[in-house]
Structures are given as structure tokens and as C-alpha cells.
Amino acid sequence: MTAENSYDRFDDDDYPAYTMGRAAEMIGATQGFLRAIGEARLITPLRSEGGHRRYSRYQLRIAARARELVDQGTPIEAACRIIILEDQLEEARRINEEYRRAAESDVPPDQA
């Protein structure tokens, strides 16, 4: 891999760049919290060659949302479920928008 290609990873939201300690620090949580949301299968960190958990920026955004809900008094299992449902809703909205655009493009120009 060239140096130029390795720098591209800094812009990759899915690249597992952060250690557990750094990830916990970044979202203001404990390493135990990250383990708990991993056990709840909200996020699944990748593992380094040495077996250490590594987190992406995308996973950190999800973890930060979970922490926000837990800080508001939501049990961790419920917070994880809420986030999963929020994600499913966003995906459904995205798909509906794609269908809407496709349907609009199929309308003959004289009927638009």
C-alpha cells in the first residue's frame, strides 16, 4: 500500500482506526460501556491482528447516540433497540425516496 492510499483511510467512516481506550475517551464513556453495547450487538468492533478491539468513526457515532440515551435514563438494552429502529426507519425513508424519484422519472414529460 502506498502512503497516498493509507491517507485515504482517514476519510473512511468505516475504517477501524480507534482503540477501545481512545474510542471510550472520544465519546466520554467507559470501556465497559463499549463492551456492553458490543454484547448487545449494537456495534461489532473489528479486531486488530493482536486481537484488540478497533472502532470506526461510524461506530463511534452509534456509541455516542447510545451513551446519550443511557445518560437520559434509558436502559442500555432499550437504547440499543431504539438506535436499531432509528437506523431501520432511516433506511426505509431512503428507499422510499429512491422509489419516489424513480416513479417521477418514469412519468412522461407532458404529464409532469
Rank of each mutant, 00 (worst) to 15 (best):
V70F: 00
L89C: 10
R101F: 13
F10C: 14
D13T: 05
D71E: 09
A29L: 02
A66Q: 02
A79K: 05
Q88I: 04
H52G: 00
C80L: 06
D14S: 12
Q72M: 09
A36F: 04
R53A: 09
M26K: 15
G50W: 00
E25C: 07
T19G: 12
E91W: 08
Y55Q: 02
Y7A: 15
S56T: 07
Y18G: 01
G38R: 11
Y58G: 03
I27A: 00
E49R: 10
A64V: 01
R67H: 08
Q88S: 09
N5M: 13
T44A: 12
R67G: 02
N96W: 13
A17M: 08
A78F: 04
I37V: 00
F33C: 06
R54T: 07
G50T: 11
S48R: 06
Y7R: 15
A36H: 09
I43V: 15
A79S: 08
I37H: 04
G51W: 08
E4T: 07
Y58M: 05
A64N: 08
S48L: 01
D8S: 12
A102D: 05
R41Y: 09
I82L: 12
L34R: 02
Q88T: 06
A63L: 00
Q72L: 03
T44Q: 14
D12P: 11
L89D: 07
R93D: 14
